[in-house]
Write a protein that binds this DNA or RNA. Sequence first.
DNA 1: GACATATTTAGCTATTTAGCTAAATAGCTT
DNA 2: AAGCTATTTAGCTAAATAGCTAAATATGTC
Lengths: 106, 106
Amino acid sequence: MSAPLVHQLKRQARLFKALAHPGRLLIVQELSRGERCVCELTSLLGVQMPTVSRHLALLRDTGIVEDEKRGTQVFYRLRSPCVLNVFECLDALEHAPSRKELSHAA
Amino acid sequence: MSAPLVHQLKRQARLFKALAHPGRLLIVQELSRGERCVCELTSLLGVQMPTVSRHLALLRDTGIVEDEKRGTQVFYRLRSPCVLNVFECLDALEHAPSRKELSHAA
DNA sequence: GACATATTTAGCTATTTAGCTAAATAGCTT
DNA sequence: AAGCTATTTAGCTAAATAGCTAAATATGTC
């Protein structure tokens, strides 16, 4: 297995992992409606602010969101609305019939 | 936050989590070329068979792959080729310029 | 039925993750 | 500069994950 392939797999896995948490998915979903400050997201998620801050740091490190400090607040927004496509893909996956089901169908 | 929403978020997160591992991504990529038995995937991944078996069980439980026993071997295949779209989405995400970069551009 | 092969399950350990609280940082306002 | 608010960082604990080895299960062959 080639080194570049391994590297690419790790990078992709890192992206998936960043999205593999209900709270972070909710953040992404909320940010798809526009930028939000940490405090807004905190009340949305219903966990402590430090926890949200760490979730956001993770999303930032993987390039999914970017932040901008304005005064005392920090606003986060999606770096590319393209992330939302991923949800569509997964929804499609979820509702797709299996090949087994297909082969059993009349 | 409504209960159905929470439920949906958890389900989506579970799907992402299943894909959030380099070895499992490699499995998915390999299965996109056709069905494979556990032993083939084991030599591909370069880890012990029990480990691969557990990865496959996880992918099966989330509905990403399905298995079929033939004789002494078990063959796995993608339940829907749609998963591959997710990769395209993520690649697109990775190469998308940030809004910051866009606003700084001439 | 004994034996060999393919796969899964169990049980263990090391690492990672998610939440918390407390403390540190940074920017306002007075 | 003192105090207030928003955010991040550090340090901790509990739970989840990934790998291993050994044992169990299932199928096919002699």
